[in-house]
Structure formats: C-alpha cells, structure tokens
Amino acid sequence: MTYIFDGTFQGLLTAVFEWFERKPGKVVLKSTSIFQPEAFVESFTVNTNAEKADRVWAGLQNKLKKDWQRKYYCTYLSEIPEAYNHVFQFTIYIFQNQLGAESNYGNPHVIALAKYAKSVEREKHRMEAFIRFQKTGDGIFYANIDPDFNVLPLISSHFKNRYADQPWVIYDLKRKYGLHYNLTSVEEITISFSNGADKQNLAPVLMDEREALYTTLWKDYFKSANIVARKNTKLHLQHVPKRYWKYLTEKVPI
C-alpha cells in the first residue's frame, strides 16, 4: 500500500498518525510531487491535519532526545523522496520499540536517517561558510544561494546571532524564498525579480561604493594565501565543489 502526503512536515507526521489508526500493514510513503499510480498497489491520500501532527510530534519528543529530533527534522529537509519514506518507517519503528531504539545502527532506517542528517548538516555548514554578502547602497548585506537541500530554516539563527548589528538578506533562488533580518527579527520573504533582471549578479549601481574595493582585496588575499609549490587541485575541488563557485567572491572571475 502507498500513502501519499503533501510534502509538508505536518503532512508527514499526519501520515504516521493515520497508519497507527488504521494499521494497514506494510506501507510506502510518497509525496504528491513524485507519486505515480501503480496498477496493483492501493493508495491512500493523507489529509494534513495540524492537530494529529502535533500529537505525533509530542509523542516523538518523549521518545527521542534533542539530537535525534534534529536528525529527524534534517532528514525531512533533505527533500529526497526516499528520505520521506525512511522517516516514516523510522517513526513507526521508534513508537513500536523501547526507549533508546534509535541507537540501533544495525537498523536500516536508523542508519539512513543518520546519513541523510549528516548530508543536510554538511550542506548547512557549507552555507555558513560559503555565503558571501555584498553590501548594497542602502546598507543591506545581500547574498544569493541555491543549496542542495532546504537549509534556510537551519542557518537562520546562526546568521542572526553573528550579524546582529547589520541588516541582511539571504535568498534561496532555487526554492524562491529568503530570510530578511531587520536588526530585531528574521522574517521570511519572497522577492519578485523584474523580468530580465540578472538574479545571480546584482547590478553594480545597486552596490555600496566600497563594495568593489573589498571584493578586490578578498580576491587578492585568496591568491596571496596560496602556496604554489603545494598545489593540490583534487583536494581543493573536494573541499569547494564547483557547483558553489558561482556565489563565491574569490572564485568568480572578474
């Protein structure tokens, strides 16, 4: 049997609730966006329900410590179709077993969650490292990103704590939403770019007058810090994969 949910975190939790209410046996969870009807498999569409979702989450909080709650949420944020199903199966496994069942790394769903969470945390960490702000004429520090996973919810507090005295915007071009910090709180925003506008590179006229100086100095510094005799391109690419280059000031050609 296949359960279909709407792709939201609440939807996923509701699906777990429905499973325990119906006990239909073996079920695979899929999101609407990837679901394809199959001839001999029954399907059931989950109606997302905040109340049911909250009950499941409250139950999970009794079963899982903070670190595993985070792994759980991170796996959801990976947006990978198989990951949704693993989270679903993991939840059932946790509810059906004694406290501490999450440390059974021999279980396929436990190890899957640990792996997905690790990938998402790595991407989160990369964003904390690779985001490059540009100061605009009106004093806002602006950065574009398009991370592999939906990590904006995870990085929000890091940037809020760190850049407490400057307004900033981090915009996810892939998922078409961003975060805006206005010196007191962080809010979610969407930007409607005018037709034909270059989303990736802000026009120089919008920039602070000193922006070009610091861009150049940073590029210079990046070059000076390199020791030519130790050149190791493989290692360099391993740490800074090419897909991130387009937003890295030091890697963007002038």
Partner: peptide, 27 residues
C-alpha cells in the same frame, strides 16, 4: 565567544573554513 553586546560576530566551538586555497588548505 557569544554575541551578547549586539555587536558583530561570535565564535563557533567547531570553527568554520570559509574557503580553501588551490593547495587545498583551509582559509
């Protein structure tokens, strides 16, 4: 170090490498 004075910056216990030079060393 925590950003308690509403100033700039804090330090992460784990540290962050912001980029890597072409010899593969962390910057």
């Amino acid at each position: 170090r925590k950003n308690t004075n509403k100033g700039l910056g804090d330090s992460h216990a784990s540290g962050i490498c912001h980029t890597y030079t072409e010899d593969g060393r962390c910057v």
